[in-house]
């Protein structure tokens, strides 16, 4: 099975060179989507010898992931893994993420931060925000309560799932949109424990409290789009 990792990157020149080799050792191919970075992300990623696509202007993480996913499908990926560019996802966990798909037990696998494996450095505020996000996802979006981490960006899916799940949210709302679509389809969607490491840098760039309102607003607007 051909495993392709998709890494969306925005202004990650200082970190992506460390992330790419760690991901490449666990995937057959790596696709980096430079999402209109203002720094040298594109050239740094290209120097690492992986496929690099470039958005001419910044369109958001969801948009970059979709571009990378389409590219992965075009090169014959059997399994597509979405990984953050900031190094917060444990590369060793990628193999665990892919395993249920290669064994034919699942079509989509999410890495959850709330299934017993303690994330390193997760602030209490972030934990509360993610818990509130889970409640919102259940009651406002109808995402089943069994999903412990609807905002997780660490996911793997087989090619059939990647083709059938439609997501249009360009920015941070893509997580909820993608999981909602997957959970409402006939695809087998499961979660496994995942270790996420937070540093001051990843926290500075990650979701803020106010982003929750933005995500809710984007989802509302998206509900009215054809």
């Amino acid at each position: 099975m051909k495993v392709v990792a998709v890494i969306p990157a925005y202004n990650e020149a200082s970190r992506i060179a460390l992330v790419i080799p760690r991901v490449r050792s666990r995937a057959d191919e790596v696709i980096v989507v430079d999402d209109g970075s203002l720094d040298d992300t594109f050239s740094v990623a290209q120097a690492s010898g992986v496929r690099v696509l470039r958005h001419a202007i910044n369109r958001g993480q969801g948009a970059a992931l979709k571009t990378g996913t389409l590219c992965a499908l075009s090169i014959g990926a059997d399994v597509i893994v979405h990984v953050d560019a900031d190094g917060q996802h444990d590369p060793d966990g990628l193999l665990d993420l892919i395993a249920p798909i290669t064994r034919g037990e699942a079509d989509v696998v999410y890495g959850s931060r709330f299934m017993g494996v303690e994330s390193e450095g997760m602030p209490l505020m972030r934990r509360c925000l993610l818990m509130a996000g889970r409640v919102f996802s259940t009651f406002a979006l109808g995402i089943p309560r069994r999903f412990t981490d609807p905002q997780s960006g660490l996911r793997a899916m087989n090619a059939q799932a990647a083709r059938s799940i439609q997501f249009h949210q360009d920015r941070k709302a893509h997580c909820s949109e993608l999981l909602r679509a997957a959970s409402r389809s006939s695809l087998r969607v499961i979660e496994i424990p995942a270790r996420v490491t937070y540093t001051s840098e990843t926290l500075a760039k990650g979701n803020k409290t106010m982003d929750a309102l933005d995500i809710a607003w984007q989802l509302l607007l998206g509900a009215f789009q054809k």
Binding site: I57, R59, L70, C71, L221, Q225
Partner: peptide, 23 residues
């Protein structure tokens, strides 16, 4: 707001097409 959101999505499609073609 809806119209702006639609324009945003159309812009993304264009940016994506260019990125895939360039690649």
């Amino acid at each position: 707001f809806l119209r702006l959101d639609k324009l945003d999505r159309d812009l993304t499609k264009l940016v994506r097409r260019v990125a895939l073609d360039e690649h």
